[in-house]
Every structure is written in structure tokens, then in C-alpha cells.
Nucleic acid binder design. Structure first.
Lengths: 266, 266
DNA sequence: CAAATTGTTCCGGTATATCGGAATACATAT
DNA sequence: ATATGTATTCCGATATACCGGAACAATTTG
């Protein structure tokens, strides 16, 4: 590290490679190596190297003749194995369907990726409307109801450290005080539930219930996105549907995980 | 590189990291770093390093207090994005269900990972029985009907180079001559179809039809696993059901890919 | 067709990742 | 407790990956 402000340290290939994958997720479209390098602010030659390596292992895939690449089939292979063991998909899908059947609203299965929230699975309600966040799209934690639950195991300081300053600036331009955000986190944890009028639009209401994994940490949430009128009218009904579904899911998922580690321990 | 037979070259972190993921897929259970190192025949200290890095980026996940790790939630995030764009899942699932509805047999969606075949999606038939290969399990290409189609774009030499010698030894102990395997590959390609009595057991029959991607390469297959009696009785019916489904799927998937690359090109 | 611009490959110096082996921590048996 | 065995961390030498910049190729523009 040099004496002035520039750390000037070489980035590790692994981290850069993963950053490429994250970058492509964010862009959501195939890109050429140079676009990736510029988009990430990374050295060109390194990105060319890494893209070639990732193509060779099929972690990236060449999409067109112009050299654009995107997430590759190897990821599908790994995730097929991941999902086989935790069986997200098989377990979660019917539960979402059940929630939507009971409430007729759009239901989602959400979790964290680093310091962001994302929707891992979605089940459209009977009268679908444009949802703020699409499947797989990373969204600032404070913008979401689920976010309150997903970080409730952290201390105040850890929360402050985790969440980037800019994520407290809500999409409507207003600023959410970290302290009042943390208050809502504590309340969500106490209630094992959180709901509020969506801050991404002004006509929907979000309900979120925690799904617990090992050592009772909330690792996923189930949530419902409903028009505010419906939400008010059916509040108790929706809330209990969601909480019950989340409890069932917690049991099923922890059963999975513990049976797997027992098998590993022979 | 030393003078005797030992190349003695350091492995690149990326490749080893990916090898760790592949190894865990193969084992199918959480493992401790030392088990991974020994299972892969890799240097211990390197594996400890890499496992720590992969844990930090959530590509691996700590499963129990003994330090066992397994595929992590980051893979789920990436694959959520992968699947969102290619929408395997959304497109393939109903097609498999349709095939199974028409034939009442177990249907599968298969592809390659490196020099091995695997089942990426499965739909159990109305009277399920134990299938030879589970979802996500890597199987030698020559053991499968789909394998013939998935490599049919390769030259004879490329096929020989790709497939490890030992994969021509079938599970029943017999040896399949590469030349006669290649013959069956060429026939499969000409027929755009392949079927045979399963070589993993002696009571099922496998049908496979090609799903084509860009430049008309067979990148996936649809297949049916049926009891031999049923297979014979309903041969034409099953075959056409599968071929029709595969054609529909080819169209849908290529439409996806090309629309994506058009968007990227603005 | 030349010039300018943009995209890709090549190359070499140096920061650093890999890996053998030693040191240490942990677990189990004596 | 002590001994024995196993798992993990630490450490340092050196092979090599990363990256700046030059060379080269492709594409667009005048």
C-alpha cells in the first residue's frame, strides 16, 4: 500500500471472478469483457483473463458471436445439487401456492445476498400487478419489510456496519434514520412479523413473516404483497396465513439441514 | 517443472475452488476441509485457505459446529438469476408434466457437465420406481441414451478425447467399444432420437429426444424412462410425444436466448 | 482508403497466492 | 494426567497471477 490514499493492492482472482458473476446478475444482460471491466471499474487485462477461465469451466457462457458472455450452465449444475439437498423449490413452491390460494395475493420467498435483499421465488396472485422488485434483483434492506426480519439477529452496530449509508435513502427521496430503522427491526423481531405500506409504490402493503434456520436465525422470509385496501380488510387473515406457512417452512427446512449433517457425521 | 515425471505446478485458486464445489456435488454431503482435501487429493493448506474464502463469500456454507461445509446460498442467488433469464424451470417444468401426462411415465430433462451427463429436472411418473441416476448426479455419457445426442456435434476424435476410457466400462462389467459407441452416436444424430434398454438395470427402456440451442447443437435432451413392456407396447406414441415436446422446447429456448442477446446489443 | 476509435491480445515486473512442513490445538485412548 | 493421534493454523520460499501498458486487430468515421 502506497503512502498516499491509494491502497494499490492486487485483487484476488476468486473475488474478481465472483464480482463478475454479481455484476452480470446486476446488469441482467450478456456483456462483452470490456463492458464488464468498465462496468466494474476493474483492470481490463485481468477481466479478459478471468472471463476466459470462467468460459473454460462453463461458469460463464458465450452468448453471441460478438463475444458477449453471461452466467453459464455450470451454475445450473451446482445449484441443482444445492437445491436437491435443501430442496428449496420442492418445499417452498407448494407453500407459496398455498398462501396465494388462501389470500389470492402475490406471495414471495425472500432472503439476503450480502448486504442486499432479494426475491428468490415468487408466486403471482390472481390479479397480478407490477411488483417493485423482480426475482433475483438485489434491493436495499431498509426498503423492504422482510429486510427487518432478516437482519434481526445482528447488533445495532453490526446493522450499521452492514448496510451502506445510501441504502437508507428511500426511493421516494426521503431519508430513513438508521436509529428508527433499527427500532423497526427490534419490533419486527419481537412480533416475529412485520408489515408496512410499501415504500416502492403507494398502493401496496407488504406483510413479512420469518422462516428460521439453525440457531433460530431468520434466514428466509415469506411475504405477501397486496393492494392496501385488501390488506386492511383482511389483515388478520393474511397475517395468520403467512405466519402459519412460515412456521411450517421453518420446520421442514431445519429438518432437512439437520438430517443432512447427521448423515455426514455417519 | 522438475526433470522427472512430476510436473509440480501450482494449481490456480479458481480451478481448485470450482473443484471443491464439484467434489461436494459428487459426495452429496457436507464435509470438513480435511475430508475435502483428502477426497480431492489436494494440498491441505490450500484447501483450508480456499474454504475460508468461499465461506466468506457464501459460496460455501458452514453446516454444523464441527466445521463441515456444503454448497452455499450464493449459488442459489446466481442460479436464480441464471434461471430467470433462460427460465429453465418455468418453461421446462410444464413440458415435462405434459409428457408425463401423455405417457404416464417418468420424464427427465438432461444435459452435460464437462464429460458427464446429468439429470437437471425430473418428473416422476404415476407409478414411480427407483431410477438409476438421481437429479444432479453425474453419470458417464456412454451409459445413457441422452448422451448419444448430447455429443453428436463432436468429431470421432473429439469424442474419444472427451470421454475417459473407464466410462466405456458399463455398470454390468461389460466393455463398450468406442467405435460402436460412436456408431450409435451417428445413428442418434441421423434419427434425431435414440432409445435402448437401460444398461443400468434390466427392466427399463430409455427414450431420448434432442433439444437444440444456438447453431443447432443439442444442448439438452428430454427423455422417458419406462418399463420395457410399456415401452414396446406404446413405442410410437411415446416417441412422438417426446419428439414433439423437444421441438417445442427447442423453439422456446432459442427464442429466449436470441431475445436476450438482441437486448444486449440494444 | 486513411484516420480515428474501440476492442482484444500480448508481455514482463512485481505483489502475492500456493503449498510443504512445522507448530499448535483439539480429541481420544491409555 | 499422559500419551497418541488427528485436525487446524501458522509460516516462509518461490512459482505465478495480476495488472499496466504496448502491440495488434477490428470497427467506425471522415
Amino acid at each position: 500500500m502506497s503512502k498516499d490514499g491509494k491502497p494499490k493492492t492486487k485483487a484476488r482472482g476468486l473475488d474478481r471472478a465472483f464480482a463478475i458473476l454479481d455484476h452480470l446478475c446486476q446488469v441482467g444482460l450478456p456483456q462483452r469483457p470490456i463492458e464488464i471491466a468498465e462496468g466494474m471499474g476493474a483492470p481490463k487485462s485481468s477481466i479478459y483473463d478471468l472471463v476466459a477461465l470462467l468460459l473454460a469451466s462453463n461458469v460463464l457462457e458465450k452468448i453471441d458471436a460478438d463475444g458477449r458472455v453471461f452466467l453459464g450452465p455450470k451454475l445450473n449444475f451446482w445449484s441443482t445439487n444445492y437445491r436437491k439437498h435443501f430442496d428449496l423449490g420442492g418445499i417452498v413452491r407448494p407453500i407459496l401456492e398455498n398462501v396465494t390460494a388462501r389470500t389470492r395475493e402475490t406471495s414471495q420467498f425472500c432472503t439476503l445476498d450480502g448486504d442486499k435483499y432479494y426475491v428468490a421465488m415468487m408466486n403471482e396472485g390472481n390479479r397480478p400487478f407490477r411488483i417493485s422488485a423482480d426475482v433475483g434483483e438485489r434491493t436495499p434492506i431498509p426498503w423492504t419489510a422482510s429486510g427487518r426480519l432478516l437482519i434481526s439477529h445482528l447488533s445495532d452496530q453490526e446493522i450499521i456496519d452492514l448496510i451502506p449509508e445510501e441504502d437508507f435513502h428511500l426511493p421516494d427521496g426521503s431519508y430513513l434514520e438508521p436509529s428508527s430503522f433499527i427500532e423497526s427491526v427490534r419490533k419486527a423481531n419481537a412480533d416475529q412479523f412485520f408489515d408496512f405500506d410499501s415504500i416502492a409504490d403507494n398502493f401496496t402493503h407488504c406483510f413479512a413473516a420469518p422462516v428460521y434456520g439453525l440457531n433460530n436465525r431468520c434466514i428466509y422470509t415469506l411475504c405477501i404483497i397486496a393492494p392496501q385496501g385488501d390488506a386492511e380488510k383482511n389483515y388478520d387473515e393474511y397475517r395468520s396465513a403467512l405466519v402459519e406457512a412460515a412456521e411450517i417452512l421453518s420446520k421442514k427446512l431445519t429438518a432437512q439441514t439437520s438430517s443432512m449433517s447427521e448423515m455426514a457425521a455417519e
